[in-house]
Nucleic acid binder design. Sequence first.
DNA 1: CTGAAAGCGCTAACAG
DNA 2: CTGTTAGCGCTTTCAG
Lengths: 344, 344
Amino acid sequence: MMVRMRDIADRLGISVSTVSLALNHKDKGRVNPPLAEKIRVTANRMGYRPNPHAVGLKLNKSHAIALICYTGPDDPFLSGLTGGAQAAAAEAGYILITIPVTDAPGAEESAIQTALQRDVDGIVFAADYYRRRDIPTVPDTTPFLFLDCISTGSNPVVTEVIADEAQGSFDATSHLISAGHTHVGYVGVDDDRYIARHLREKGFRDAVREHLGDEATPLIINAADPSISAGEAVAASLFSRPVAERPTALFCFSDRTAFGVAQAARRHGLSLPEDLSIVGFDNVEYTSEFFTPRLTTVELPHQRMSSEAVRQLVHLIENPRCEPHRLKVPCPLIHRDSVNPHHS
Amino acid sequence: MMVRMRDIADRLGISVSTVSLALNHKDKGRVNPPLAEKIRVTANRMGYRPNPHAVGLKLNKSHAIALICYTGPDDPFLSGLTGGAQAAAAEAGYILITIPVTDAPGAEESAIQTALQRDVDGIVFAADYYRRRDIPTVPDTTPFLFLDCISTGSNPVVTEVIADEAQGSFDATSHLISAGHTHVGYVGVDDDRYIARHLREKGFRDAVREHLGDEATPLIINAADPSISAGEAVAASLFSRPVAERPTALFCFSDRTAFGVAQAARRHGLSLPEDLSIVGFDNVEYTSEFFTPRLTTVELPHQRMSSEAVRQLVHLIENPRCEPHRLKVPCPLIHRDSVNPHHS
DNA sequence: CTGAAAGCGCTAACAG
DNA sequence: CTGTTAGCGCTTTCAG
């Protein structure tokens, strides 16, 4: 069934080592070129595929990559994460092993052990949500990389792939302002566990300063958490303000916040997007699209992040001496129907 | 770093084969029990883990399972599928290799080759959506199983894990009827590519017959496809009927159909769930929850299906002679707010 | 420029 | 009951 080097050596009446040399492109000045070429051609024709176990046993390599990933049963992002990683790995000729990790004590170590035991060539470690965390113990011969999380400590000691949340927020806010809204606000979240909160707020502030000038005081309120109900709760206070102080456009920490805000607005008799424009953040699959009006939002590009992570990892595997760095994947603004132009 | 059988043999002053025997529980009547026990204990203490490559090379096994899966970049179900499979595989001590497959010609074969080349112990083949398809060529020494798709041909020649759609529809319809609705209808879909359509319609019909009697003529209309707009389009015709013929409750082919129906209902001045109760199908992550009113719907239990699939596969791997069969995973009804009691 | 041979860690005959 | 031995398919010195 499986054709081995042995088979092609026999066919050509030569030895296995010569075949190995040629097939691994280590033949430079060791096998005469025409022979090497002939070897490669017949290997191809015979459908030769190296036996990964044999190679692995010899080289302690497996041409496999592990994606270690926190897996809430209802994580809306796992899908993008595995999908992107899978595709990128396949493209680079690696296989993807997905290893779940839970909150149980020791689970991380055991996940990493599982990976190491399989001699994976590299590990992508993804947290459940963007957050700061310390680096698990991994032998530094094994390329390792963070996805959607960053290491504690100031400069990256490990390569990290994250979303450029500040840019996403900046773009969203800019979009609102360029639609004519001068009275634009930000509905954030008041919980430091969401480290994205600072980046999103920063993007908002920067956009306000850049487009509306230094003297503009940014309107910012914070919900208790990123849920619909919390969004609805804080937003209520906004709409009971005097009309002059009432924003005509709101950029929200999350899609759920935006839904809550929308609900509160409607409750106060406003209609969307005519009386209030909103932009969310996350682009929760399908949901933002189903909402009425279809929610304009900033996408968290999980698919691209994970494929980028795998690409970086492969690069690291193939170029072992490569400095750790932080790669920010842009968050695209998804234009839909929840933003209206405003004429003052 | 890695401790080998050799190491533990040396430590104990015995031979590798004895260690192998003991560690693989093949020691019955071949190694004296106390020794065997001591071997196992020290193996544990030394943190021995078998080298999968060595075992694989020898046995053509890898203690790995492949999940071959169609992967639309925006498939809302991939998440549940991989999540469930991952967890179940880890639990059974197998590793999960996820292999993407696209619509490109030859992609399926190549995915399967990739899996076989790695000597996976079994393959779960998942289609993107429930549908009938023929069985890819896989050596019958490799346990193989269909997830969310069934083979062409009448009786299963391969084990299949699918959702019990008819039961889900039956339950949804029964729920509507037991809430007092006698004028209940079904908004289906008029496209045979969705093989679920017949099962869902059947569940509806059966429930109507069982609870409302044979003489009740089930009200059924079909949308062109399962989209929101198509749902909205057919539903419109329903609401322009005379009040007496107007249903007070509708079971819908999909969540999206339900959203469309809701939209049409509102357009006709009805309010939900007071004037119209609706139940969807799919429980699209988050979405059904965000909708107002929160949508009562039938869940497609992808998580459970995939974990069940790998459990079945593991069983198949460990009990090679096991008849192919079809396993139906129940579709639970998720009670939310879109169904109101009806008093006639 | 090419081949013989050793050995990666493990299993399974086969001897003892 | 235990040890010796021969590979699994491949890479890699080391001789020729």
